[in-house]
Design a protein around this nucleic acid. Structure first.
Length: 422
DNA sequence: TCTGGGGTCCTAGGACCC
DNA sequence: TCTGGGGTCCTAGGACCC
Protein backbone atom coordinates (compact mmCIF):
# COMPACT_ATOMS: atom_id res chain seq x y z
CA UNK A 1 0.00 0.00 0.00
CA UNK A 2 1.65 3.22 -1.07
CA UNK A 3 1.59 5.88 1.62
CA UNK A 4 -0.73 8.86 1.63
CA UNK A 5 -0.31 11.64 4.17
CA UNK A 6 -2.56 14.53 5.02
CA UNK A 7 -1.23 17.48 6.95
CA UNK A 8 -3.95 19.33 8.82
CA UNK A 9 -2.74 22.71 10.03
CA UNK A 10 -4.78 25.27 11.96
CA UNK A 11 -4.89 28.68 10.34
CA UNK A 12 -3.32 31.42 12.48
CA UNK A 13 -3.93 29.15 15.45
CA UNK A 14 -3.52 31.45 18.47
CA UNK A 15 -5.40 34.27 16.79
CA UNK A 16 -8.16 31.85 15.77
CA UNK A 17 -8.46 30.53 19.35
CA UNK A 18 -8.93 34.07 20.62
CA UNK A 19 -11.62 34.69 18.02
CA UNK A 20 -13.62 31.63 18.98
CA UNK A 21 -14.35 33.18 22.37
CA UNK A 22 -14.34 36.81 21.39
CA UNK A 23 -16.27 37.27 18.16
CA UNK A 24 -15.55 41.00 18.23
CA UNK A 25 -12.13 40.06 16.92
CA UNK A 26 -13.67 38.69 13.73
CA UNK A 27 -12.66 40.56 10.54
CA UNK A 28 -10.20 42.70 12.48
CA UNK A 29 -6.43 42.45 12.44
CA UNK A 30 -5.36 40.43 15.49
CA UNK A 31 -1.89 39.69 16.83
CA UNK A 32 -0.84 37.54 19.77
CA UNK A 33 2.37 38.32 21.63
CA UNK A 34 5.00 36.07 23.22
CA UNK A 35 5.79 36.03 26.94
CA UNK A 36 6.37 39.47 28.45
CA UNK A 37 4.40 40.79 25.48
CA UNK A 38 7.69 40.77 23.61
CA UNK A 39 7.28 39.57 20.03
CA UNK A 40 4.45 38.82 17.64
CA UNK A 41 3.91 35.04 17.58
CA UNK A 42 0.60 34.84 15.73
CA UNK A 43 -1.25 37.03 13.26
CA UNK A 44 -4.69 36.93 11.71
CA UNK A 45 -4.83 37.24 7.92
CA UNK A 46 -5.74 40.91 8.29
CA UNK A 47 -2.62 41.47 10.40
CA UNK A 48 -0.48 39.62 7.87
CA UNK A 49 -1.91 41.85 5.16
CA UNK A 50 -0.64 44.88 7.09
CA UNK A 51 2.88 43.52 6.65
CA UNK A 52 3.34 42.53 10.30
CA UNK A 53 6.08 39.90 10.31
CA UNK A 54 6.30 36.84 12.50
CA UNK A 55 8.63 37.38 15.45
CA UNK A 56 8.83 41.16 15.18
CA UNK A 57 9.16 42.93 18.56
CA UNK A 58 5.93 44.63 19.54
CA UNK A 59 7.54 47.97 20.38
CA UNK A 60 8.89 48.31 16.85
CA UNK A 61 5.44 48.21 15.27
CA UNK A 62 3.51 50.06 17.96
CA UNK A 63 2.56 53.00 15.71
CA UNK A 64 1.32 50.60 13.02
CA UNK A 65 -0.73 48.65 15.55
CA UNK A 66 -2.36 51.83 16.75
CA UNK A 67 -2.95 53.29 13.30
CA UNK A 68 -4.86 50.21 12.15
CA UNK A 69 -6.59 49.48 15.41
CA UNK A 70 -4.93 46.07 15.59
CA UNK A 71 -6.27 43.92 18.43
CA UNK A 72 -3.26 42.97 20.53
CA UNK A 73 -3.36 40.05 22.97
CA UNK A 74 -0.89 38.42 25.33
CA UNK A 75 -0.55 34.70 24.78
CA UNK A 76 -2.86 32.42 26.73
CA UNK A 77 -1.28 28.98 26.60
CA UNK A 78 -3.91 27.33 28.79
CA UNK A 79 -6.53 28.25 26.19
CA UNK A 80 -4.44 27.21 23.17
CA UNK A 81 -3.45 23.88 24.72
CA UNK A 82 -7.05 23.04 25.45
CA UNK A 83 -8.25 24.06 21.98
CA UNK A 84 -5.45 22.01 20.44
CA UNK A 85 -6.70 18.95 22.27
CA UNK A 86 -10.22 19.51 20.93
CA UNK A 87 -8.93 19.78 17.37
CA UNK A 88 -6.85 16.59 17.74
CA UNK A 89 -9.80 14.68 19.20
CA UNK A 90 -11.92 15.76 16.26
CA UNK A 91 -9.29 14.62 13.76
CA UNK A 92 -9.03 11.28 15.48
CA UNK A 93 -12.67 10.61 14.61
CA UNK A 94 -11.74 10.73 10.95
CA UNK A 95 -8.50 8.86 11.08
CA UNK A 96 -7.10 6.92 14.03
CA UNK A 97 -3.65 6.96 12.44
CA UNK A 98 -2.80 10.41 13.65
CA UNK A 99 0.45 12.09 14.64
CA UNK A 100 -0.02 15.36 16.49
CA UNK A 101 3.04 17.18 15.23
CA UNK A 102 2.78 20.48 17.07
CA UNK A 103 0.19 22.43 19.00
CA UNK A 104 -1.58 23.39 15.77
CA UNK A 105 -0.94 20.64 13.25
CA UNK A 106 -1.20 16.90 12.78
CA UNK A 107 -0.24 14.36 10.14
CA UNK A 108 -2.87 11.79 9.21
CA UNK A 109 -2.18 8.58 7.36
CA UNK A 110 -4.81 8.20 4.65
CA UNK A 111 -3.10 5.20 3.05
CA UNK A 112 -6.16 3.04 3.53
CA UNK A 113 -8.49 5.68 2.15
CA UNK A 114 -7.38 5.78 -1.47
CA UNK A 115 -10.64 4.35 -2.73
CA UNK A 116 -12.30 7.51 -1.52
CA UNK A 117 -12.11 10.88 -3.12
CA UNK A 118 -9.30 12.29 -0.97
CA UNK A 119 -10.07 15.88 -1.81
CA UNK A 120 -13.65 15.44 -0.74
CA UNK A 121 -12.57 13.73 2.48
CA UNK A 122 -10.27 16.66 3.17
CA UNK A 123 -13.18 19.05 2.82
CA UNK A 124 -15.27 16.98 5.21
CA UNK A 125 -12.48 17.02 7.80
CA UNK A 126 -12.06 20.74 7.43
CA UNK A 127 -15.77 21.52 7.75
CA UNK A 128 -16.16 19.28 10.80
CA UNK A 129 -13.22 20.76 12.69
CA UNK A 130 -14.62 24.20 12.03
CA UNK A 131 -18.09 23.22 13.22
CA UNK A 132 -16.98 21.34 16.32
CA UNK A 133 -14.17 23.61 17.53
CA UNK A 134 -14.55 26.92 15.69
CA UNK A 135 -11.00 26.65 14.36
CA UNK A 136 -10.34 26.99 10.61
CA UNK A 137 -7.80 24.50 9.24
CA UNK A 138 -6.08 23.78 5.95
CA UNK A 139 -5.48 20.30 4.58
CA UNK A 140 -2.61 19.23 2.31
CA UNK A 141 -2.51 15.73 0.83
CA UNK A 142 0.46 13.96 -0.80
CA UNK A 143 2.56 10.80 -0.72
CA UNK A 144 5.21 12.11 1.69
CA UNK A 145 5.23 14.39 4.72
CA UNK A 146 7.42 17.01 3.03
CA UNK A 147 5.09 17.12 0.03
CA UNK A 148 2.02 17.22 2.29
CA UNK A 149 3.56 20.29 3.92
CA UNK A 150 3.89 21.89 0.52
CA UNK A 151 0.34 20.90 -0.42
CA UNK A 152 -0.88 22.46 2.81
CA UNK A 153 0.94 25.68 1.99
CA UNK A 154 -0.76 25.77 -1.39
CA UNK A 155 -4.15 25.12 0.23
CA UNK A 156 -3.59 28.00 2.60
CA UNK A 157 -2.41 30.51 0.06
CA UNK A 158 -4.81 29.81 -2.76
CA UNK A 159 -8.23 30.94 -1.58
CA UNK A 160 -10.17 29.26 -4.39
CA UNK A 161 -8.91 25.86 -3.21
CA UNK A 162 -11.31 26.11 -0.30
CA UNK A 163 -8.62 25.14 2.19
CA UNK A 164 -7.79 21.71 0.77
CA UNK A 165 -5.17 20.72 -1.78
CA UNK A 166 -4.44 17.22 -3.03
CA UNK A 167 -1.07 16.98 -4.74
CA UNK A 168 -2.09 13.73 -6.43
CA UNK A 169 -4.62 15.74 -8.39
CA UNK A 170 -2.09 18.34 -9.52
CA UNK A 171 -1.61 18.19 -13.30
CA UNK A 172 1.84 19.77 -13.40
CA UNK A 173 3.82 19.07 -10.27
CA UNK A 174 7.12 20.41 -11.63
CA UNK A 175 5.50 23.71 -12.35
CA UNK A 176 4.14 23.86 -8.81
CA UNK A 177 7.47 22.91 -7.18
CA UNK A 178 9.16 25.48 -9.37
CA UNK A 179 7.08 28.17 -7.70
CA UNK A 180 8.02 27.16 -4.16
CA UNK A 181 11.06 29.04 -2.88
CA UNK A 182 13.71 26.72 -1.48
CA UNK A 183 13.64 28.44 1.91
CA UNK A 184 9.93 27.60 2.20
CA UNK A 185 10.55 23.86 2.06
CA UNK A 186 10.02 22.15 5.44
CA UNK A 187 13.48 21.32 6.81
CA UNK A 188 15.36 24.07 4.97
CA UNK A 189 16.36 26.65 7.56
CA UNK A 190 18.13 29.96 7.02
CA UNK A 191 21.57 28.39 6.91
CA UNK A 192 20.89 25.75 4.31
CA UNK A 193 18.78 28.22 2.31
CA UNK A 194 21.71 30.63 2.08
CA UNK A 195 24.04 27.84 1.03
CA UNK A 196 21.65 26.43 -1.59
CA UNK A 197 20.91 29.83 -3.11
CA UNK A 198 24.64 30.47 -3.39
CA UNK A 199 24.82 27.28 -5.41
CA UNK A 200 22.01 28.29 -7.73
CA UNK A 201 19.31 26.21 -6.06
CA UNK A 202 16.46 28.60 -5.41
CA UNK A 203 13.28 26.51 -5.79
CA UNK A 204 11.87 23.26 -4.45
CA UNK A 205 12.07 21.86 -7.99
CA UNK A 206 15.80 22.58 -8.25
CA UNK A 207 16.36 21.05 -4.82
CA UNK A 208 14.45 17.99 -5.99
CA UNK A 209 16.80 17.66 -8.95
CA UNK A 210 20.05 18.25 -7.05
CA UNK A 211 22.66 15.48 -6.92
CA UNK A 212 22.51 13.03 -4.04
CA UNK A 213 26.26 13.27 -3.37
CA UNK A 214 26.17 17.04 -3.19
CA UNK A 215 23.22 17.04 -0.79
CA UNK A 216 24.65 14.26 1.39
CA UNK A 217 27.97 16.06 1.66
CA UNK A 218 26.59 19.48 2.57
CA UNK A 219 23.33 18.73 4.33
CA UNK A 220 23.95 15.32 5.81
CA UNK A 221 21.59 12.40 5.98
CA UNK A 222 18.75 14.65 7.10
CA UNK A 223 19.07 16.75 3.95
CA UNK A 224 19.16 13.70 1.72
CA UNK A 225 16.01 12.30 3.30
CA UNK A 226 14.31 15.61 2.73
CA UNK A 227 15.23 15.62 -0.97
CA UNK A 228 14.00 12.03 -1.36
CA UNK A 229 10.71 13.07 0.19
CA UNK A 230 10.43 15.92 -2.29
CA UNK A 231 10.83 13.35 -5.06
CA UNK A 232 7.92 11.39 -3.65
CA UNK A 233 9.89 8.70 -1.81
CA UNK A 234 8.49 8.48 1.70
CA UNK A 235 11.31 8.43 4.29
CA UNK A 236 9.55 10.00 7.27
CA UNK A 237 6.95 7.71 8.80
CA UNK A 238 3.91 8.62 10.79
CA UNK A 239 4.96 8.53 14.44
CA UNK A 240 1.94 7.49 16.39
CA UNK A 241 3.40 6.64 19.75
CA UNK A 242 5.42 9.65 20.74
CA UNK A 243 9.02 8.78 21.62
CA UNK A 244 9.80 9.22 25.30
CA UNK A 245 10.92 12.73 26.11
CA UNK A 246 14.65 13.43 26.00
CA UNK A 247 14.58 16.68 27.94
CA UNK A 248 12.32 19.04 29.86
CA UNK A 249 13.07 22.75 30.05
CA UNK A 250 11.62 25.71 31.83
CA UNK A 251 13.18 29.06 31.03
CA UNK A 252 11.79 32.57 30.97
CA UNK A 253 12.86 36.08 30.24
CA UNK A 254 12.28 38.22 33.33
CA UNK A 255 9.65 40.95 33.36
CA UNK A 256 12.27 43.18 34.98
CA UNK A 257 16.02 42.64 35.05
CA UNK A 258 17.33 40.63 37.97
CA UNK A 259 20.31 42.10 39.79
CA UNK A 260 20.45 40.18 43.06
CA UNK A 261 21.16 36.59 43.96
CA UNK A 262 17.97 36.55 46.06
CA UNK A 263 15.78 37.35 43.07
CA UNK A 264 17.70 34.91 40.91
CA UNK A 265 17.13 32.20 43.53
CA UNK A 266 13.41 32.91 43.51
CA UNK A 267 13.14 32.82 39.74
CA UNK A 268 15.18 29.66 39.37
CA UNK A 269 13.25 28.00 42.21
CA UNK A 270 9.95 28.66 40.55
CA UNK A 271 11.18 27.53 37.11
CA UNK A 272 12.53 24.37 38.69
CA UNK A 273 9.19 23.76 40.39
CA UNK A 274 7.42 24.16 37.05
CA UNK A 275 9.82 21.81 35.26
CA UNK A 276 9.38 19.27 38.07
CA UNK A 277 5.61 19.38 37.57
CA UNK A 278 6.08 18.58 33.89
CA UNK A 279 8.46 15.78 34.87
CA UNK A 280 5.89 14.17 37.16
CA UNK A 281 3.13 14.60 34.60
CA UNK A 282 5.25 12.44 32.28
CA UNK A 283 6.03 10.00 35.10
CA UNK A 284 9.73 10.54 34.67
CA UNK A 285 12.68 11.13 36.96
CA UNK A 286 15.78 13.15 36.15
CA UNK A 287 19.46 12.26 36.55
CA UNK A 288 21.10 15.39 35.14
CA UNK A 289 20.16 19.03 35.47
CA UNK A 290 21.53 22.09 33.70
CA UNK A 291 21.00 25.55 35.15
CA UNK A 292 21.71 28.62 33.04
CA UNK A 293 21.42 32.38 33.18
CA UNK A 294 22.13 35.19 30.76
CA UNK A 295 22.12 38.98 30.42
CA UNK A 296 20.17 40.88 27.75
CA UNK A 297 21.93 40.41 24.43
CA UNK A 298 20.03 43.32 22.90
CA UNK A 299 21.30 45.78 25.46
CA UNK A 300 24.50 47.70 25.41
CA UNK A 301 25.40 46.62 28.94
CA UNK A 302 28.10 44.18 30.10
CA UNK A 303 27.26 40.70 28.80
CA UNK A 304 27.57 37.46 30.69
CA UNK A 305 26.01 34.06 30.33
CA UNK A 306 26.89 30.76 31.87
CA UNK A 307 25.54 27.30 32.54
CA UNK A 308 26.39 24.43 34.82
CA UNK A 309 25.42 20.78 34.53
CA UNK A 310 24.88 18.80 37.71
CA UNK A 311 24.66 15.05 38.07
CA UNK A 312 22.12 14.20 40.74
CA UNK A 313 23.19 11.53 43.24
CA UNK A 314 19.89 9.69 42.76
CA UNK A 315 17.37 10.17 39.96
CA UNK A 316 14.43 12.11 41.36
CA UNK A 317 11.16 13.86 40.56
CA UNK A 318 10.72 15.71 43.79
CA UNK A 319 10.62 19.46 43.69
CA UNK A 320 12.51 20.19 46.88
CA UNK A 321 15.50 18.06 45.93
CA UNK A 322 15.61 19.64 42.50
CA UNK A 323 15.35 23.15 43.89
CA UNK A 324 18.15 22.43 46.30
CA UNK A 325 20.37 21.26 43.46
CA UNK A 326 19.37 24.18 41.22
CA UNK A 327 20.27 26.72 43.89
CA UNK A 328 23.65 25.06 44.32
CA UNK A 329 24.14 25.35 40.57
CA UNK A 330 23.17 29.01 40.55
CA UNK A 331 25.81 29.70 43.17
CA UNK A 332 28.45 28.30 40.86
CA UNK A 333 27.59 30.57 37.94
CA UNK A 334 26.04 33.73 39.41
CA UNK A 335 28.28 36.81 39.27
CA UNK A 336 27.41 40.12 40.86
CA UNK A 337 27.21 43.27 38.82
CA UNK A 338 25.16 42.18 35.81
CA UNK A 339 21.62 42.90 34.66
CA UNK A 340 20.22 39.42 34.14
CA UNK A 341 17.44 38.99 31.60
CA UNK A 342 16.78 35.30 31.57
CA UNK A 343 17.43 32.06 33.38
CA UNK A 344 16.26 28.50 33.19
CA UNK A 345 16.69 24.86 34.06
CA UNK A 346 16.86 21.87 31.78
CA UNK A 347 16.40 18.25 32.84
CA UNK A 348 18.14 15.58 30.77
CA UNK A 349 18.93 11.94 31.36
CA UNK A 350 15.25 11.20 31.95
CA UNK A 351 14.22 7.75 33.11
CA UNK A 352 10.84 6.28 34.02
CA UNK A 353 10.06 7.25 37.61
CA UNK A 354 9.24 3.62 38.35
CA UNK A 355 12.79 2.53 37.51
CA UNK A 356 14.75 4.75 39.85
CA UNK A 357 17.78 3.01 41.32
CA UNK A 358 17.86 3.78 44.99
CA UNK A 359 21.24 4.57 46.47
CA UNK A 360 22.23 2.39 49.41
CA UNK A 361 23.15 5.45 51.43
CA UNK A 362 20.29 7.56 50.22
CA UNK A 363 19.12 9.79 53.07
CA UNK A 364 15.83 10.96 51.56
CA UNK A 365 12.47 9.60 52.62
CA UNK A 366 11.22 8.74 49.13
CA UNK A 367 7.76 7.45 50.06
CA UNK A 368 6.95 10.57 52.03
CA UNK A 369 8.26 12.79 49.32
CA UNK A 370 6.13 11.02 46.72
CA UNK A 371 2.97 11.59 48.74
CA UNK A 372 3.81 15.23 49.15
CA UNK A 373 4.37 15.71 45.42
CA UNK A 374 1.11 13.95 44.57
CA UNK A 375 -0.79 16.24 46.91
CA UNK A 376 0.99 19.31 45.61
CA UNK A 377 0.18 18.51 41.98
CA UNK A 378 -3.43 17.72 42.82
CA UNK A 379 -3.97 21.04 44.57
CA UNK A 380 -2.31 23.03 41.81
CA UNK A 381 -4.31 21.24 39.12
CA UNK A 382 -7.58 21.79 40.94
CA UNK A 383 -7.12 25.34 42.16
CA UNK A 384 -4.76 26.75 39.60
CA UNK A 385 -1.01 26.55 39.20
CA UNK A 386 0.86 28.42 41.88
CA UNK A 387 -1.80 27.88 44.56
CA UNK A 388 0.79 25.93 46.52
CA UNK A 389 4.37 26.89 45.96
CA UNK A 390 7.74 26.72 47.63
CA UNK A 391 8.86 29.55 49.86
CA UNK A 392 12.11 29.71 47.91
CA UNK A 393 10.10 30.89 44.90
CA UNK A 394 9.38 34.14 46.75
CA UNK A 395 6.26 36.27 46.99
CA UNK A 396 7.00 39.65 45.43
CA UNK A 397 8.36 38.27 42.15
CA UNK A 398 9.41 41.49 40.53
CA UNK A 399 11.02 39.30 37.87
CA UNK A 400 7.78 37.60 36.95
CA UNK A 401 6.83 37.28 33.28
CA UNK A 402 4.27 39.89 32.25
CA UNK A 403 1.05 39.46 30.31
CA UNK A 404 -0.75 42.78 30.19
CA UNK A 405 -3.31 41.84 27.57
CA UNK A 406 -4.21 38.28 28.34
CA UNK A 407 -7.64 36.92 27.51
CA UNK A 408 -9.45 34.84 30.17
CA UNK A 409 -8.87 31.08 30.41
CA UNK A 410 -12.28 30.51 28.83
CA UNK A 411 -12.08 26.74 28.66
CA UNK A 412 -9.99 25.69 31.65
CA UNK A 413 -11.25 27.91 34.47
CA UNK A 414 -14.87 27.89 35.64
CA UNK A 415 -14.68 31.52 36.66
CA UNK A 416 -13.68 32.51 33.15
CA UNK A 417 -16.50 30.77 31.30
CA UNK A 418 -17.92 33.10 28.67
CA UNK A 419 -21.42 34.28 29.55
CA UNK A 420 -24.19 34.33 26.95
CA UNK A 421 -26.81 37.02 27.57
CA UNK A 422 -30.27 36.66 26.15
C1' DT B 1 63.60 2.63 12.17
C1' DC B 2 58.79 0.58 13.38
C1' DT B 3 53.53 3.33 16.75
C1' DG B 4 46.51 -0.90 15.30
C1' DG B 5 41.84 -0.98 14.88
C1' DG B 6 37.41 -1.00 16.29
C1' DG B 7 33.92 -0.21 19.44
C1' DT B 8 31.17 2.59 22.95
C1' DC B 9 29.95 6.50 25.49
C1' DC B 10 29.74 11.28 26.35
C1' DT B 11 29.65 16.15 25.20
C1' DA B 12 29.35 20.35 22.65
C1' DG B 13 27.74 22.58 18.91
C1' DG B 14 24.99 23.21 14.83
C1' DA B 15 20.85 22.93 12.32
C1' DC B 16 16.15 22.57 12.20
C1' DC B 17 11.06 22.66 13.81
C1' DC B 18 6.71 25.09 15.76
C1' DT C 1 11.67 51.66 28.25
C1' DC C 2 10.26 47.48 25.20
C1' DT C 3 13.34 41.63 21.49
C1' DG C 4 9.70 34.10 23.47
C1' DG C 5 9.96 29.24 24.79
C1' DG C 6 10.47 24.37 24.18
C1' DG C 7 11.87 20.79 21.66
C1' DT C 8 14.50 17.11 18.15
C1' DC C 9 18.23 15.00 15.52
C1' DC C 10 22.93 14.67 13.67
C1' DT C 11 27.96 15.12 13.71
C1' DA C 12 32.59 15.52 15.23
C1' DG C 13 35.90 14.81 18.56
C1' DG C 14 37.76 13.06 22.84
C1' DA C 15 38.12 9.51 26.47
C1' DC C 16 38.33 5.00 27.30
C1' DC C 17 38.43 0.04 26.60
C1' DC C 18 39.96 -4.38 24.65
Amino acid sequence: MSPVFALVDCNNFYASCERVFNPKLEHKPVVVLSNNDGCVVARSNEAKALGIRMGVPEFQIRPLLKAHDVQVLSSNYALYGDMSQRVMETLEQFCPDLEPYSIDEAFLSLSGFTSRNLMEYGHTIRATVKRWTGIPVSVGIAETKVLAKIANRVAKRTPDMGGVFDLFACPDRDDLLGRIAVEDVWGIGPNHARFLIQHGITTALQLCQAGDQFIRMHMGIVGLRLVMELRGVSCLDLEQCPAPKQSITCSRAFGNSVTTLTDMDEAVSSYTARAAEKLRAEELAVTTMTVFLTTNEFKDTPQYSNAVTLKLPVATDSTHELIRAALQGIRQIYRDGYLYKKAGVMFTGLIPASQVQVDLFDDQNRARSKKLMTALDAVNTRFGSGTLQYASSGMAKTWRTQFHRRSPAYTTDWDALPVARA
